[in-house]
Design a protein around this nucleic acid. Structure first.
Length: 121
DNA sequence: CAGGTGACTCTTT
DNA sequence: GAAAGAGCCACCT
């Protein structure tokens, strides 16, 4: 039997438990709201692991049903932006967000005051 | 075990 | 505000 040395990243059933915790939090983000990668990591109990949050969202697949588009990059104290580098993927994320009511500023920013999610909601 | 990587973020120029 | 540097953390080879 082949051992699972070659983990299929696309196999959402077998991603690490840490990623699963990220996903668990992400699933609670309401429509029209967003959280930053750092915030997601913190809420998942991994403060400082913002980059991992990014990796987790990237590793998510359509089958997992995770609202990955609601996780964005913090760019200042009051605004966030799409974190995806690939222009096409970034456009997709923006479309998904706009479809659920997220408003973008002239410079493609997202007001955290308006759309930032506080788990208290 | 070691070194490279990135959908991050904060501080300093 | 943009650009550059430096931490950051777990994953992948």
């Amino acid at each position: 039997m082949p051992s699972r040395r070659n983990r299929e990243k696309s196999d959402a059933e077998h991603v690490g438990e840490l990623y699963q915790r990220m996903y668990a939090v992400a699933r609670r983000i309401p429509r029209g709201k967003v959280v930053t990668y750092g915030q997601l990591a913190e809420l998942a109990g991994m403060p400082g692991a913002a980059r991992l949050a990014g990796a987790a969202m990237r590793a998510s697949t359509p089958e997992t049903g995770i609202p990955w588009q609601r996780v964005v990059a913090k760019r200042s104290r009051t605004t966030a932006k799409i974190g995806i580098l690939d222009p096409i993927g970034a456009a997709v994320q923006r479309s998904l967000l706009e479809a659920e009511g997220v408003r973008f500023t002239r410079s493609a920013g997202i007001s955290l005051a308006e759309h930032g999610w506080l788990p208290l909601d």
